[in-house]
Every structure is written in C-alpha cells, then in structure tokens.
Design a protein around this nucleic acid. Structure first.
Lengths: 336, 336
DNA sequence: TTGTAAGCGTTATCAC
DNA sequence: GTGATAACGCTTACAA
C-alpha cells in the first residue's frame, strides 16, 4: 500500500506537504503540488478512508434502513425504485450508500450502534418494522434521518399524496356513475394505508355519500393474496358486490380482480377496480389496471434532498410529513 | 464519544486491558472482563470502525457494483431479487453491503480506487457496462469478485442455466406441434442473451430442425419496447408470423404479444409465446405468460457463497461460470 | 511555503 | 494477567 510517506520520500518533502498537495491546499507551491500529484498517480496512491475518517469524523456515507423482516423486500417496485433514485442523487454529491446492518463480524449491534460505529452521516428509512425496539433508539438519537412512506410519525417523512390520489380515484368512479364504492385498505399499521382510508371516508362525505362500514375491508398485507382474501371478506360482509372497488395497492387490486373472476363477476362490466402504485406490468394485465401512479423518482429525490439538508444543517426540518409528492390517475381498462 | 480510554479510567486499568476484554481475549481475568463489559454497556460504548479497521485491515464490507448507466436499474426484479438474497446471506455472516461508488466527496475515483480506499473485502458485480474502462482494472486487481449473469468472462460467474431453460421452452413448443419457432434474443452484449441464442440453435439442430436466420431477431434491450420493435422486425424479415416465439425475457415477450395483438394476431391461438424470468405479474397478464422461471434466491445465495469462499481463500475459484442455477418452465396461457 | 509533531481510537507486541 | 507503548495512515495546528 502506497502512503503519503512513500510519496514524501520520493518527493523529498514532508508528509504534511504531500497531504496538503493532495487536498489541494493553497499552502503549497504550484510546482510542488504538480510534482506530488504526478508522483501520487505514478505510484498508484489511493488514500485510506479509515485513516482519513479517523481524523475528520464525517464519513460521506449514508445508511439505508431496509429491514427484510417484513415481507416487503427490495423486490417491491416502489421501494427499489425510490432507492435507485435516492442512490443516484446522493452519489452524485459524493456520498456512498450502505445498508444499515445489525452485525459486524460476529458481534451484534443495534441500528444506532451500527450507525455510530460507522460514523454514518445520515439514514434513509425505507421499510422497517415500526414496532422494532431498536428503531426508537435510532430515531431519537439526533442522527439525520428521513423516512419514506411509513408509519414513523416522529421522523421527517416524504410520502405520496395519498389524499389527492384517493380523491381522484373516487371522483372518477363517481363521475362514471358508481354509487357503492368499496375500499380494500392496506394493512393499517402502514401510514399510507391509514391515509388512503381517511381519504376514502373524507371524499365520500364531501360528496354527501354515507360511509358504509360494510364496504370497507382491511387487507392483511399489500400483496396479491391479501387482496384475494379481502375481496371474499368484502362480499361476505356486504352481502353482495359493489359497483366499484378502490384498492390500496395494485397487487391487492389484481388479487381482487382474480377473485372476482373466479366468482363469475366481470371487471369492469360488473365491478370497476382501481389500484394504487402503477406497477409497470399493470399495463399488460387483463384487464389492464386503472391505478393511482406514484412518482418514485420524485419521492427518492425529495428524500435525498431533505436528508442532505439535514446533514448539512441547512434548515430545521420538523418531524412528520415534509413533502407530499403528487400522484396521477392512470385510466385503463379495469374501470368503466 | 466514549472510548476505551474512558472505560479504562473508570475501571482503573489500562486501555489495552479494556481492548482485550472487549475482544474477549483470554489474557484477561474473568472478573475484570465482566466488570469492563458492564462498564462499557453502562457508558454506551461503541467501537469506532475507522480506528479499528485502520489497524486490522479487513473491513467486513462487500461492495455491490451496480451501474445505472445501463437502463437496468434496481427496479429490475431479477437483480433486486438477487441482491436481496445476497444481502441477507452475507449480513448474517457479519458483512455489510455498500454500493461501489465513483466519488468520495468532491473527488472522483475509479472502481478499483474506491475499493482500495474503503478496504473492501470483495465485490459482487450485478449490472455493469462491460466496456467500461474502469471495469477491467477492477477485475484484474486480484480483489475477490463474483459476478451474476453478465458478459464478464474473466470473473467467476453465477448464472441461470440458460441452455436448460431454452431447451425446455423449445421442446415444449415442439411437443405442442410448433414447426417454425422464432427467437427474439436479448441484446447480444449480454452473456445470457448469447447463451439463450446458442441454446436455441443447438436445440433445433439436435431436433433436426434447420435454423432459419430469418426467424432470429435481436432485441435492442431486454425491455417491453424492444420486444415490440423486435417483433415488427421479425415479421418483416420472415415475411409472416411463425408458429411460436421464444423471447429472451418476459418484458420482450409481453411487448411482442401486444404488438401481435395490434396487428390482429391472437396469442396463443395464432402464435404461442414463451418468455424468460417469471416476473411475478406475468401470472396476471392477458394471456398469462408461459415462461422460464429464474431462481433469484439461489442465484443470490450461490453468488454470496462463492464470494465468501474467495474472500476466505477457501478454494481456488476459476474465472468463468462457476455455477449454473437450474431454471423451471412455468406453463400458462400464452402457449397452446 | 515547508516541516514538525501531536493526535484520531484502535490493536498488538512486548515487558513486567 | 496486566500495562506501557508503538504502530495503523492521515490531518492539522503550529513552528520554522
């Protein structure tokens, strides 16, 4: 390994001069600087992050909290898309992106301990078990944190505009003549699920439609099977099929559609169905899915911007929702 | 920040003793050890990775090379699924997972420089521009590297069994009576695309079917639009529609199906179509897609195993394909 | 403009 | 068993 001492020896100067030259300090003559830089290149010098960071403290490193304890893995389009954008944004600024871990070698650490151990500059919380005991410790530690779309109310959060999305979906259905609109909500431990449910009730009330609790079912999860089960539950408790269904995710919507089909109902002829997410393939399903499209790019970028601002102490960012990212209604074949 | 000196002071011993106790050395009395451990906990001591790694060299850290220059982002199910599995596997062993970056603060680095800078133990190459000049430097550096499913022949590679998958797909089509089977290949800069194309030709030859070059089209990319364009090209050069199409990815297959539909052909009545990947939603497309399913979990785990073995110098792993992961033919509605 | 030297928080090598 | 002390490679006062 080539160190600044090796360079200093060859250059016939002190290591501190090399350090200054490498860091482009103006306390070094231009000639020396060029000479040292050339030498560094020739000798294949690469600085050692550990030595550097041991001195300077800040790490240029951002942690991603991404618990796979939940069944939502990286495979989930929304989160992986958000992560992609986030990563691109912060890397361009010179940060590196590391997954927050719970272990180092054989030793177990809490999230906070790991962040301290690594001198992490900030954390993006993507998915996490809200009840995780280690989480509170982290969110209260003072480390810059931004969260995306989950139930952590004590953390600055970037989220899709669930109210706007819900309103657009319902108003469209009503415009098309739907009278009895059901809602299959997401699991209510999720923040977005709660917002979409609230939005559902609000919108109906504002349109002078009475909220019928029998038209509301909570899916156990955001996935396909939960949607299927929820639909069966809906039919059971409502004792029939509504005009339309507003589902809290595309997967739920697709599960519901398949369940409806198996029961002999046609979508959209008998029932209109709207999803939420705009997973790419919903364009190609049968019927293609009308859905509320989340702007993953903007969510990722906004999360990055807010986290960087926090790290740089640029402004005070209060816990709670710091940005509602606009959504869009994509009309396809599953509604009539 | 609590250091071992702080603990030493409180414990009334030397910092080296604290270090030994913390590292569970047997050169320290049981009583002392317990006392120090209790004190460390009470004082909220967390070791400093930079100081530690400055001494010990190995970093317990694995880099993920994931270039977004290609259009294949984290959103691609296959790669994000593989990454998820890989991450889970190596984290359980105590490694942390970091994306390989090209910048540190304001400074640009090559991949290799970054890996040296961070003292990375090993690298998983997920997606990368094969022609990237920085790549060669990295793969020839001697740093442990494993790659997944791409064209880097000079690196130990874990890959789906494209030959087996192709054979199963084609034999199924032939069994069902297809005489003229076209192949929409992936972009041939991709290793898997080449293998699937080779497998196509081999299988036909072994079945005494003459290979008709007009039945082969290369898609510009693995995505939907490339599939659409490739299909139009196919029809043009073949001057008609074949009995069946074997596409190198699900997205290509779906693009082709839509293009066929727009031209008035029915799938599977007029043409059977088989994809590759088994993206989850292909169950719900119309028609649902017959496809070769890749085992993301196993690819991720195998890549992890091989990389760890390389890091630990457990065995000599030759460049080239080190593991072909079995695939499975999933029969659905797009074939008859 | 350059050099000296202290220190960042560990681990590891010796003595004792 | 325990404790000095010297590294690890770098940055940064401060001195020259």
């Amino acid at each position: 390994m080539v160190t600044i001492y090796d360079i200093a020896k060859r250059a016939g100067c002190a290591s501190s001069t090399v350090s200054k030259a490498l860091n482009n300090s103006n306390q070094v003559s231009k000639k020396r600087k060029e000479e040292i830089l050339a030498l560094a290149k020739e000798m294949g010098y690469v600085p050692n992050s550990n030595a550097r960071l041991l001195k300077t403290k800040n790490s240029w490193s951002i942690g991603i909290l991404f618990s796979e304890d939940l069944n939502i893995g990286l495979e989930h389009h929304f989160f992986s898309g958000v992560l992609q954008e986030f990563k691109t944004y912060v890397e361009a600024l010179g940060y590196e992106v590391t997954f927050v871990s719970k272990k180092v070698g054989a030793q177990s650490l809490t999230y906070l301990e790991w962040c301290k151990y690594k001198n992490i500059d900030g954390v993006l919380i993507l998915t996490v078990d809200v009840d995780d005991v280690n989480l509170k410790e982290l969110t209260e530690s003072g480390i810059p944190i931004v969260s995306v779309d989950n139930g952590l109310i004590n953390v600055p959060t970037v989220i899709s505009d669930n109210f706007q999305g819900t309103r657009m979906a319902l108003e469209y259905l009503m415009l098309k003549g739907a009278k009895h609109i059901a809602h299959i909500s997401g699991p209510l431990r999720s923040f977005s699920a709660v917002e979409r449910l609230e939005g559902y009730k609000d919108t109906l009330k504002k349109s002078d439609v009475e909220v019928d609790e029998n038209l509301i079912v909570e899916a156990y999860n955001y996935d396909y099977n939960s949607g299927k089960n929820a639909l069966l539950q809906l039919i059971k408790q409502y004792k029939g099929v509504p005009d339309a269904i507003y589902a809290a995710s595309d997967d739920i919507a697709l599960g519901a559609i398949i369940a409806l089909r198996e029961l002999g109902y046609k979508v959209p002829d008998d029932v209109s169905v709207i999803g939420f997410d705009n997973i790419e393939l919903t364009r190609y399903t049968s019927p293609s899915l009308t859905t509320v499209s989340q702007n993953k790019m903007m969510v990722g970028t906004e999360a990055a911007k807010h986290l960087i601002a926090l790290i740089n102490n640029e402004k005070n960012i209060a816990p709670g929702i710091v940005k509602r990212v606009p959504v869009e209604l994509i009309i396809r074949e599953s509604t009539k």
